[in-house]
């Protein structure tokens, strides 16, 4: 059978194409352009080939920042995902408390990121902050501006406070979509609450949890504002995550070439890891 050929339909794709071009492809290409050139200012550029990429990949500074980034991301994932699921399970399913809980949960998500950073910066100050002062008063030698461990503790606590809600909301959405009949059927079978969680709630939440983990992974890998306001990457370089290091190189030292090369590697790392995450988490369904 002959299909009607109508190429005019392509015009409908044009707006999206233009939009994506301007907000993604063009900026990305600019970065690609910088990453293969050297400049000493005055808009004069020299061809540098892939030397920047080699430099970045070999530099211990990049390795350290990447290591810190991975530690941060996996720590917060290990805390936020189980914690989010536990909170979602504990939330009421009906009644007026549902909206109260949802609003309370959504609150941290509504606060601008730099405000979160500033809040925790003050909150954790050992001399005047509520958290810092309390910790010192009960006998901990706590000072996040000077001690690496304390800085990490504060950074992770802040992220957990800020973002666990996202996991809670997604997990909760997954939970309330389970028909009542499943719980009744389990009750008739005499299933324990662990069995209900293991065989009904968890499998039914799988899809939303996949999304939650992916979102939290990407966002935490991209995180900049909050740690930058909280610790500025310090003390020393101890909390300098990839994005903070990138800004230091690009805007602090104005090394456009290495910064561009690093951006691209950074981007590829996120892309690759998201793909791995997604493939692993959806492998079950793909097999079937």
């Amino acid at each position: 059978m002959n299909k009607t050929v109508n190429q005019k339909a392509w015009f409908l794709v044009l707006p999206v194409l233009l939009l994506v071009a301007f907000n993604a492809i063009v900026p990305l290409m600019t970065v690609v352009n910088y990453s293969v050139q050297e400049t000493f200012g005055n808009n004069v550029f020299f061809w540098a080939g892939i030397s920047w990429f080699e430099d970045v990949l070999r530099s211990p500074r990049f390795h350290d920042a990447l290591g810190r980034q991975l530690t941060f991301t996996f720590t917060i994932l290990l805390i936020e995902v189980p914690l989010g699921v536990i909170i979602a399970l504990a939330m009421p399913r009906k009644g007026i408390w549902v909206s109260v809980c949802l609003v309370l949960m959504a609150m941290p998500l509504l606060i601008p990121w730099n405000v979160v950073g500033a809040m925790w910066n003050i909150f954790a100050l050992p001399e005047i902050g509520l958290l810092g002062k309390t910790l010192n008063a009960i006998g901990f030698d706590y000072n996040y501006t000077r001690q690496t461990g304390d800085a990490w503790f504060t950074l992770i606590l802040m992220d957990v406070w800020h973002w666990t809600s996202l996991v809670v909301l997604l997990a909760y959405a997954g939970l309330v979509s389970i028909p009542d009949a499943y719980y009744q059927a389990a009750k008739i079978d005499g299933a324990s609450s662990w069995a209900i969680f293991r065989y009904i709630q968890l499998p039914k939440m799988k899809r939303v949890l996949t999304i939650a983990i992916l979102l939290r992974f990407m966002d935490s890998f991209n995180i900049y504002t909050e740690p930058s306001v909280l610790t500025g990457g310090g003390p020393g370089n101890s909390t300098t995550l990839l994005s903070i290091d990138l800004v230091k190189i690009a805007l602090g030292q104005f090394d456009l070439g290495p910064a561009a090369a690093m951006s691209l590697i950074y981007f590829l790392v996120i892309l690759l890891m998201s793909w791995i995450f997604y493939t692993v988490m959806t492998r079950d369904e793909a097999n079937q």
């Binding site: 028909p179 009949a181 009744q184 059927a185 008739i188 079978d189 065989y199 009904i200 499998p203 039914k204």
Partner: peptide, 29 residues
Amino acid sequence: AVQKRNVSMVYQQFINYPNMSVYDNIASP
């Protein structure tokens, strides 16, 4: 309590344990 009575129920929605095989589903009670 329901689990102490010897009852079975089938619902309008198709209620099975999602990540168990059909065999395990039937065997579960």
